[in-house]
Design a binder for these strands. Structure first.
Ligand SMILES: [Zn+2]
Ligand SMILES: [Zn+2]
Ligand SMILES: [Zn+2]
Ligand SMILES: [Zn+2]
Lengths: 131, 131
DNA sequence: TATAACAATGTTATAATATAACAAATAATA
DNA sequence: TATTATTTGTTATATTATAACATTGTTATA
């Protein structure tokens, strides 16, 4: 899961490092605040790193939250297909890695018979603690 | 599908009307520009209407695009469960209404046995025209 | 080693998206 | 009518994201 880290640039490593240390999704400007001590002073430095890390699948963007989370599912790097559960009370986010689900969605066809290998699924509800 | 329109407020009707006239998702500030001739001058007036329309299921937010599309699937009003196909080339967006898909996702359980009645799924690919 | 080509970084400014806060008008209810 | 709640109007500001360009670092090869 960390095997690609050595090919990352300095800024990409710094940004990935702080996201991986967080159990929960981080917002771009919160990341920026946290990496300022390491010399990344301006938004573009953070967003560039985020873009690259998303592109190579090391992190994912939680679209409904405008936040970024480290990937915990090695299959993602290849698939561009992601699924998450989000607690609407405590905002806890978990990446779902279910080969059954991903197979089902990858094989799904719309009314015109179209298939989509790339998708993002966000489930909402209450987590165990909050229920 | 339009049965609830009479209960909407003036601004909500104006905003819904313009979104329904568009085949494709509209961005909030594009909506704002279009409704200025009707007296809605400031962002909060548009965002309030959007919030309400999303809440009652008349429109949906395409999270990956920060854009809003009219609902074409009467089941949505109840379910809070949505699925879309998005063309990465021409940005064409279609709401998917597949009872098979919605049943599958509503019944999906994560590793801890949790179920989620609410979800948003965005498929990405190339539409017929762009392929 | 030079030097060209390319990639990564730094920096400033600004664009695009969204909400807070409060005042005024309107509608619903008693 | 008086009371209450909802909707609207308005200003200002917060949050998220990118454009543009200068600088530095790295790699390739002449
Ligand atoms: Zn992942
Ligand atoms: Zn929770
Ligand atoms: Zn719908
Ligand atoms: Zn297309």
């Amino acid at each position: 899961m960390t095997q690609k880290k050595e090919y990352l640039s300095k800024n990409q490593k710094i940004v990935l490092d702080i996201i991986e240390k967080s159990a929960q999704p981080m917002k771009a400007y919160s990341i920026l605040f946290n990496v300022q001590k390491k010399g990344l002073k301006a938004p573009p430095q953070v967003y560039r790193a985020l873009d690259k890390l998303v592109e190579i699948g090391k992190i994912h963007k939680i679209e409904s939250r405008n936040a970024f989370i480290a990937c915990r599912n090695s299959a993602c790097t290849i698939t561009n297909a992601t699924a998450f559960s989000i607690c609407e009370s405590c905002e806890d986010v978990k990446e779902i890695s279910s080969s059954k689900l991903s197979k089902y969605l990858s094989n799904f066809q719309d009314k015109e018979g179209m298939k989509f290998n790339k998708y993002n699924l966000e489930f909402f509800g209450l987590c165990k603690k909050c229920k």
